[in-house]
Design a protein around this nucleic acid. Sequence first.
RNA 1: CGGGCUGUGGCGCAGCUUGGCAGCGCGCCUGCUUUGGGAGCAGGAGGUCGUCAGUUCAAAUCUGACCAGCCCGACCA
Length: 567
Amino acid sequence: MRWSQAFIPTLRDDPADSEAVSHKLLVRGGYVRQLMSGIYSMLPLGQRVRDKVMAIIREEMNAINGQEFLLPNLHPREIWDRTGRTVSFAEVLMTFDDNKGSPVVLSPTHEEIFATVAGELTSYKQLPQMWYHIQTKFRDEPRPKSGLLRVREFTMKDSYSFDIDEAGLDVQFDNHRNAYLRIFERLGITAVPVAASSGAMGGKESVEFMMQSDIGEDSVVHCANCGYAANREKATSAIPDVDDPPESGALEVFDTPGVRTIADLEVFEGGAVADRQIKTLVYVLDGEFALLLLRGDHALEEQKVQDGTGASEVRPAHEEEIRALLGADAGSLGAVGVDGIPVYADHALSGRSSMTTGANENDKHIRNVDVARDIAVTKWLDLRSVEDGEGCPNCGEPLNLFKAIEVGHIFKLGTFYAEPLGVNVLDEHGKTVPIVMGSYGIGVERNMAASIEANHDDKGIVWPLEIAPFAVVITVIRPDDAATMDTAEALYANLWGRGVEVLLDDRDERPGVKFNDAELIGIPYRVTVGPRGIAEGMCEVVDRRTGESTEIAIDSAADEIAGLLGV
RNA sequence: CGGGCUGUGGCGCAGCUUGGCAGCGCGCCUGCUUUGGGAGCAGGAGGUCGUCAGUUCAAAUCUGACCAGCCCGACCA
């Protein structure tokens, strides 16, 4: 491609509405343009990279016996009703009626449709199968952000495995885990597999691939010693026990005027330190009230409420609801003597005595609470959010807490979809059994952006060679000089002849403009051809990543560059 | 959905307080000079000032409604 004829609209200034580095560079480098919130056009450079990312994914999927499909994006809503996901995906599901008045959805993912096709599987002899496609997804995210990292229309490779039993699923799951790690390596992304919550996908076990980044939206805990890693939504930790007096005295209500918070009660005369208080939260779980109890110094992890209780809709109760339910305001709540409302308590409260909590009367608290004696706990759950530096649940060493971008997610679905959709086969005993499924997702554009987050410097993008839109840019210093241009053209033709993707910067621009643009868009190798070098029979090759510059003879330039690229 | 901010040429912004010719930098076009790290001079093109309504002799500027975008939170594979 000749740059003079290419549409590469680079910008000198950062766009005003971007924060994330990858967003700024994708826009400035002429890779993408925004059409509306969370919806982007891929410009030619962006499309080239997208293609390469997809090619890598396709290769790795084919290598683990994947068969490529292309499933539709417009689905009858009825099939989503059957798996209950019209409800669990409600907020992000784009749905409307077609012209005949039939309800349809724009697909946010394809479990239902792949499972439907899998209905044609009839015998265990046909299993295992591994199917995938690379397709557009629509998710009406309430808050798109950070350029391509969180959007409403995007491309995802999603694969689905079909097995006769859990053992087969385990094999496919492992295959994917390994394939994903190879993909991320090729994309220049360091991703850690972590245990995660399955959320709205259904199923049991899931593993997310996390790339550490300050702009990430997830929090991950990781143990450098033993390798334990988990999403904070699911992570646990070892924390030291608190010493309580051996026995609680009699319950005692006492006045606490103006005390509304854990911190207030800590400094209040006759109060209690945070880890000897019980924090009582009122939540609404699928429309029903529930009390959540935590140690005073612990924070609630909402996803754990969902996972532990099976509720799909979880929200804090409103002020008025709390007052009507318990007769007091948040800050004076407690579970002592409460019945008729489910009480979910965090494990850290188990066996605790002489605790202090609210009395369900404003300005009053209760001391000497013995959890086992005084509170009717419906169910003990892990509800607590892990904090940085707490002990690893496996080895006890301090945990690291960091922010991360979710670059891939794989799920063991089990029979979550097969059962409601009736996807069964006959097993070797002639018995009808549901197929055991897995699903495995990786976002194409999100990974493009993540790769930039991980591979850039103050001048621009530093693409890994394998996904760069071009491998080489030939920067012609004086395109109006015939000898220079002829030399550049010859090198350009030679490299293309070897299958090297080359961009020829033949624009009538100052050298500085060309160098800066080449660095901004992140081409791995720049070859500078100018009259000064030609006079000595030399040209210059610069490595984008290291900045290292090498003078090479023009006569052997094509060979040397091909050698650098390994072609 | 709650809170904050912003919509003025392709990009970045000023002008709005106090209503009165729509501006600046970059980019773009033409010409000349220049050319190994974002050139100089000269000439030029390009904007229903987010939309609609209102106030006014007069609205980018004041008022209202709406729309869009960004940030924080909620939410989220």
